[in-house]
Design a protein around this nucleic acid. Structure first.
Lengths: 377, 377
DNA sequence: CTGTTAGCGCTTTCAG
DNA sequence: CTGAAAGCGCTAACAG
């Protein structure tokens, strides 16, 4: 009766099959059945086969709640994510998943809306914590370091994609400063010396804030005139950009992301201005599928590397050996944070703080300054 | 001692705080503490406040495993997703999350790689099932209906975004046929009567398969000459498209998605062909952030509507009242499947099969046929 | 309104 | 190699 009734076409639509049912049907104890399901060695081949057969026939699925309760904790890693509709986050999500799969780590994700002053973020965070995940990856700026702090001692937490300011939480991020520097220097080398930089506030988008700050600094260091145009309540960066271009007071406009650059181009077009003929523009991200066709001048951020390093770090912290094919390279590009002998994490290591540089994309939106315009003083 | 020691700056880094600890510290029984945490009415205001205070101070987080085990099941809905790096899927993900939030439904997601012949998909599916989720949303073609079948009687399952062929599983999808028809008719109305249609195999991408099939059918019905160019082993659709255009045998090329259209445009450009001057092109999706700047002629699929209807349906099936602001409209656009009095789902209703139409985007990639070219016979 | 008593389904010593 | 027994931390009747 046990092995002689292979997989009926219509599995019993029994509400729930418990391990006990499987054990009974296979004529063994719960313990043995459990061992088989867990793949722990100490079972005879015969028993193993019978249990597997019965389990499949009955459509048994391990009750994760019971399993984790009994064994005390999950081995999956939680992922807190924001807004996958932004291609940059969507790709990060995909790449994290891919890297996790390769490293034998299971990821459980919750995405969060960015409103509520982080209220919902915290709720999701708590839910993930309640699941007793083995580690946590935070890929959203919506959750602050202070909110993470209480959990820091309970499990490994690592920020992915976003620079971490506190220095007490692990982070693997894009090297925003490097990207900003590259873009600014590109414009300088083209001969621009009057540039508008669209700036974001730290509270709105920390990565954009860092990018725009560094862009402006580099330009000023090298003697260019910089107009900082802030998004949000303080001003209408887009409109002001157009005005500056039209009046010839700047020959280039730097946007802190590609999505912003697209919007900038729309505004310029609406005003009858072309890029690069009338003005040079730059963005940052390089993720958009059509970036080549649009000819955007930008930096391609190192999503794949960030994903891989994030997973490699979390895997190490939760003590997963890894499958071996993720140990190559990239470690060299890492920079340790400036904290000296920083605080210890629960796993006993130093605080990880890696910044991964991107790749410059020349594009067509940034040419030399228009010579017909009034020369800047 | 209880309320007089508010949130110490450094919460005890105790490994795990149990409800019992909270109860003890608050001087009540586990039951009362539990009731407070669950927000169930029967507790005095005084008790409630004390428990909350202590819980916060101790950094207590409900153990989800224990909670679900005791209460018999979770109230969250599982989401099986594929490849959020595709903007169309990324946006769907985000919108599902948004709609779920609005409807008071918690979503737990697992993404899957598309390899392994669906092996990993099944593993993820099992894991979600093992979590005893209350319902399941499947937003990937990688899992077949047959693989879903065994679980159909155990919990509500609904497909999102992808047309469901079996008719036994609930589905809310984009109206691919409608989109294809619109695009084909647009070309016909422009005067094209020799068109290349890039086709996808059903196994590779079912949505693209449906789109390309219908495009070709509509064109042929209206007397146009159609060249079907298949992706994959059977041929090089991109190269063949370019050849047909160059030799003047077609005046338009239809791609089954915007990503494909972008690739097509790249190939055409590489061959020195411009769109729309030398050839009209169309795509499908309309999700790409730069779609307007690229001037793509396409259909904007109804991601938001699909997300909302999906959540509305699953919420109804798992018996969530909803917050009320999701009951408006859109129900009218639904079409019931052709199954007559279809099979009943666990909740007792008919099989849901809604198809939501998108919106045409005129773009600039499709103009009238080039008059200088050789006229088709 | 509060506490006491049983389990939820599984893993895991610890003996056979 | 296998089984019996003892919980994991919580919720849910049921009495006070």
């Amino acid at each position: 009766m046990t092995t002689s009734a292979p997989a009926s076409p219509e599995p019993r639509s029994s509400g729930r099959v418990r391990l006990e049912d499987v054990a009974a049907a296979a004529g063994v104890s719960r313990t043995s059945a459990s061992r088989v399901m867990l793949g722990q060695g100490k079972v005879s081949e015969e028993t193993r086969r019978r249990v597997h057969a019965v389990a499949e026939e009955l459509g048994y699925v391990t009750n994760v709640a019971a399993s984790e309760l009994a064994s005390g904790g999950s081995s999956t890693v939680g992922l807190l994510l924001r807004d996958a509709s932004n291609p940059a986050y969507g790709l990060l999500f995909t790449e994290l998943q891919k890297a996790a799969h390769a490293a034998g780590v299971t990821l459980l994700s919750m995405t969060i809306k960015d409103d509520d002053q982080g209220r919902q973020q915290i709720a999701s965070l708590h839910r993930l914590m309640g699941m007793r995940v083995a580690g946590l990856i935070v890929a959203t700026g919506g959750v602050t370091s202070e909110q993470l702090e209480p959990f820091r001692s309970r499990l490994p937490i690592i920020r992915a994609g976003r620079p971490e300011s506190s220095g007490r939480i692990h982070a693997v991020s894009y090297d925003e400063a490097d990207a900003a520097r590259h873009l600014a220097e590109h414009l300088l080398n083209l001969g621009h010396n009057a540039v508008a930089v669209q700036t974001a506030r730290a509270v709105d988008s920390y990565p954009e804030f860092v990018r725009s700050s560094v862009m402006a600094e580099v330009l000023e260091e090298r003697g260019a005139t910089v107009h900082r145009l802030e998004y949000g309540p303080a001003g209408d960066a887009m409109k002001e950009s157009v005005d500056l271009v039209r009046s010839g007071r700047v020959t280039a406009v730097m946007a802190p992301s590609d999505l912003r650059q697209l919007n900038l181009i729309r505004h310029l077009q609406a005003a009858g201005l072309r890029t690069p003929e009338d003005v040079a523009t730059t963005g940052c991200d390089g993720i958009l599928p059509g970036v080549d066709l649009l000819g955007l001048t930008t930096m391609r951020i190192a999503v794949e590397n960030v994903a891989e390093r994030t997973i490699a770090n979390i895997a190490r912290m939760i003590g997963v050996a890894g499958t071996g094919h993720d140990a190559r390279g990239n470690g060299e590009t890492a920079e340790r944070g400036p904290e000296g002998p920083g605080p210890e994490d629960p796993a006993g290591g130093r605080v990880v703080h890696e910044r991964l540089p991107g790749r410059f994309i020349q594009g067509r939106t940034a040419g030399p300054p228009r010579t017909t315009g009034r020369k800047p003083t």
